Computed example of a mutant assay.
Amino acid sequence: MGGRPVVQVVRLGLVSYQEALKQQQAYVNLTRSGSAHALLLCQHPPVYTTGIRHKPYPPAQLDRLRLLGADVHRTNRGGLITFHGPGQLVCYPVLNLSSFQKSVRWYVGALEETILSLCSGFGIRASTSPHTGVWVGDNKICAIGIHCGHWVTSHGLALNCNTDLSWFRHIVPCGVPGKGVTSLSAELQRDVGVDETVPHLLHAFRERFCCRLTDGPPPGSGQTDGPPPGSGQTDGPPPGSGQTDGPPPGSGQTDEPPPGSGQTDGPPPGSGQTDGPPPGSGQTDGPPPGSGQHRGE
Rank of each mutant, 00 (worst) to 15 (best):
G3F: 07
R4A: 15
V7S: 06
Q8N: 09
S16N: 09
Q18A: 15
Q25I: 03
V28A: 08
V28S: 03
V28F: 00
S35H: 11
L41Q: 06
C42W: 11
P56L: 14
A60S: 15
D63K: 13
R64P: 07
R64E: 15
R74W: 01
G78W: 00
G85V: 11
G87Y: 11
P93W: 09
L95H: 01
N96T: 08
L97V: 05
Q101W: 12
V108G: 14
L111K: 10
S117P: 04
G121Q: 08
P130F: 15
V134N: 15
N139I: 02
I141R: 09
C142P: 07
I146S: 05
C148G: 02
G149H: 03
A158M: 02
C161H: 07
T163K: 07
W167M: 02
R169V: 03
V176L: 13
K179I: 10
T182C: 12
L188H: 03
Q189C: 06
V192K: 07
H200V: 11
H200E: 11
H200W: 13
H203F: 15
F205A: 11
F209Q: 01
C211Q: 03
L213I: 04
L213K: 01
G216L: 01
P219D: 08
P228Q: 14
S231G: 12
G232T: 04
G232C: 11
G242A: 14
P249F: 10
G250P: 03
G250C: 06
S251I: 06
D265G: 01
D265Y: 01
G266E: 04
P267L: 07
P268K: 03
P269Q: 05
G272H: 03
P277Y: 09
G280R: 07
T284V: 14
D285I: 09
P287K: 02
H294C: 03
G296E: 02
E297Y: 06
E297C: 08
